[in-house]
Design a protein around this nucleic acid. Structure first.
Lengths: 254, 254
DNA sequence: CGATATGTTGACTTTAGTCAACCAGTGTGG
DNA sequence: CCACACTGGTTGACTAAAGTCAACATATCG
């Protein structure tokens, strides 16, 4: 697990701060804490395992840059990606009481990670007034609620939608989530994963995934160039996928 | 929403107490509170909607008897059951900050429900020392963690398992969960749902569901009589489903 | 006794998976 | 420089899993 310095690129900085302050008003101290926590990201290559499956008390981490996922492997090698993690997402922030098969967490691309225990500690110490949490504690709770929504979305996609619908739905979810960290412009965003990964996320074979993407392209719904994707007709995609907007904060206007 | 008295049957009483005390040691006061909360269950018929989808702040409830589910409906009528809820399960215990599409909660059978706000309040007031919650607060957290595991299980079933494997996996999960509330004897338990419900839970058509159950029966893996089911060969089912035991508490010995 | 709900069956269609090959881009070492 | 291996995307031919439609069976219930 290499730990190079911190190649802060041209990308919109501090996805984590952006995410969390979209969920609740943070105090200046909390913002400072966030900046401090994300100041020295560790660079890890794709496929790095960030949390082992069943690990009892994974250290809290934040994903500052790059994509990752929670996944579960079956004995015969089949893989199911449970949820994709994007810049600004939290990993292992809720402390866990037992060793349970939540799935492992792995980087899907090269990624920048930060240790985030201070966030958990600060949230536990402040703003946990029953019924009306404030600041960081409220934001972390909201982040957890969003992750639960993504899980429910995933269940519905896998259980009741066709391949075509699944991809449309998934792309819309990505757009919404990435918009919340200011990484979508004109319905275009970075899309750094292979069709194999996509297939494992959406419960399809690679070949069928490929054909489904082609169909979406032919239908003028998406456009892919290099490692970026453009959603060319969001209303049509929404209609195909029966997509319900969840996050008002990350709406187009941003 | 009828509210008849409280037909305490012959069933093992107080599934909720059993569940929660399996997760953490409760104080006598907490046990008393649980008994008090579950003393006067409300009887609701099958199909009662207990929580509407997107409801901002559902009241906390506990399912004392009967089965229910969280589900999401697509515009064209397709239904996906996200998670099945069993006696002792909690509904809407985590307070929610926004109105989000978590899915609606509905009774699958006639069910007994209790208002459970006192549990949330007590847990918020006591035992929330950061990092090492105690008593009820710890038990509620554990219950939440278990529900997340069930969601992950559901994703893996739907995304990467065949119909046959899905059913095997689901039955094993039910067995484990029901065992935790002492409702499994000799791998036999009450199974009060129709094949249509099962199909909506496992992302299959009713017809295919039917054929898959038949196959499991023919293979001597399960036996159904009236509204009860027996798992005749748990090790074989575990092997077919690639099932990972999650809950040591609810193991056979009980 | 119909009326309804659930389970079952057969015939057929559709969706998605499998296998194998091939292509384009990339990078490597000789 | 080129042969080579490697990855990721693409294609065609075929198979298998699951869905659809329609009919029928069975049970319960008022």
């Amino acid at each position: 697990m290499p730990s190079e310095p911190a190649p802060r690129g041209s990308a919109p900085p501090d996805a984590v701060l952006r995410r969390l302050s979209g969920y609740a008003r943070l105090t200046p101290e909390e913002e400072a804490l966030l900046r401090q926590v994300t100041a020295r990201p560790v660079l890890v290559p794709a496929r790095t395992e960030l949390v082992r499956d069943g690990e009892a008390a994974p250290r809290p981490q934040v994903l500052v840059e790059g994509w990752a996922c929670r996944q579960r492997l079956l004995a015969d090698g089949r893989r199911q990606i449970v949820v994709v993690l994007l810049p600004g997402d939290l990993i292992g922030l809720d402390l866990r009481r037992r060793s349970l098969p939540f799935g492992s967490v792995a980087a899907l691309t090269q990624a920048q990670i930060c240790e985030a225990s201070p966030l958990r500690e600060r949230a536990a110490a402040h703003g946990t007034a029953p019924g009306h949490e404030t600041g960081l504690a409220a934001a972390l709770r909201q982040a957890r609620e969003m992750e639960e929504i993504w899980l429910v979305n995933q269940v519905v996609r896998l259980g009741r939608q066709t391949a075509y619908e699944r991809v449309a739905h998934f792309l819309l979810e990505l757009r919404e989530r990435l918009a919340a960290v200011d990484r979508v412009h004109d319905d275009r965003f970075s899309f750094p994963i292979t069709q194999e990964v996509l297939a494992d996320a959406l419960g399809l074979s690679v070949v069928h995934m490929n054909r489904t993407m082609q169909q979406l392209r032919r239908d003028g719904l998406i456009e892919q160039r290099a490692t970026a994707i453009t959603l060319r007709d969001v209303p049509a995609l929404v209609s195909i996928a029966d997509y319900a907007i969840t996050d008002r904060a990350g709406a187009p206007g941003a």
